[in-house]
Design a protein around this nucleic acid. Structure first.
Length: 185
DNA sequence: TGAGTGATTGACT
DNA sequence: GTCAATCACTCAT
């Protein structure tokens, strides 16, 4: 995994075979990563492109850690930092397929429909109960919030990214082909 | 010091 | 399809 995290674009592709696990006080919540986007240091759409700030500090830290940011005044999004340290690369997790702890997810999200629990970057953060307390944590050392290798998806679609206004032509969005939990098609 | 913008979502027309 | 919610940061006074 460490080697796969050296490059954000490679890592975005590889992360589709992983499961995100959160060991919460109310129970275990897990989901398979089905959609990601890569953001690099020389990328105008990346938060790191204008230099390191207090907000983006984790993005410039060692790979395999969590970068969580607050946006639009009401939403959090979750990223996996990629390396090497000091570069400011990361992979945005855009969607998960719920595996365990669905009842907890429904409670966290306030909705009962399985399909709308985790099909968006801010939704999955809320469903898994991830907060700013998890900012900067190591995802590879078996802590409460961690990544676990699953199976490599049968087919992956590569396309342009969603929701940005700069460098919109870079084909750095990856998702599991035909998976119903992807945020957009 | 203040206006503008954003890796979004959900409610409403 | 349109729009409000409302915070951190950037850029321009």
């Amino acid at each position: 995994m460490q080697n796969d995290l050296q490059d954000a674009v490679v890592a975005a592709r590889k992360l589709l075979g992983y499961i995100l696990v959160h060991d919460t006080p109310t129970g275990l919540v897990t989901g398979r990563i089905v959609e990601t986007e890569a953001y690099t240091a020389d990328d105008a759409a990346s938060h790191s492109s204008r230099g390191k700030t207090a907000r983006t500090a984790a993005m410039f830290g060692p790979p395999g850690h969590a970068y969580i940011y607050f946006t639009y005044g009401m939403h959090y999004c979750f990223n996996v930092v990629t390396g090497p340290a000091g570069q400011g690369q990361g992979v945005l997790i855009r969607a998960l397929e719920p595996l365990e702890g669905m009842e907890i997810m429904k409670q966290n999200r306030g909705v009962s429909e399985l399909h709308s629990l985790t099909n968006g970057p801010a939704k999955l953060v809320q469903a898994l109960g991830i907060t700013k307390a998890d900012y900067g944590v190591n995802l590879l050392d078996g802590g409460r919030l961690r990544l676990e290798l699953s199976q490599v998806p049968a087919q992956v679609t590569q396309t342009t990214r969603v929701g940005i206004t700069k460098d919109i032509d870079r084909p750095w969005r990856f998702y599991v082909t035909n998976n119903p939990f992807v945020s957009r098609f």
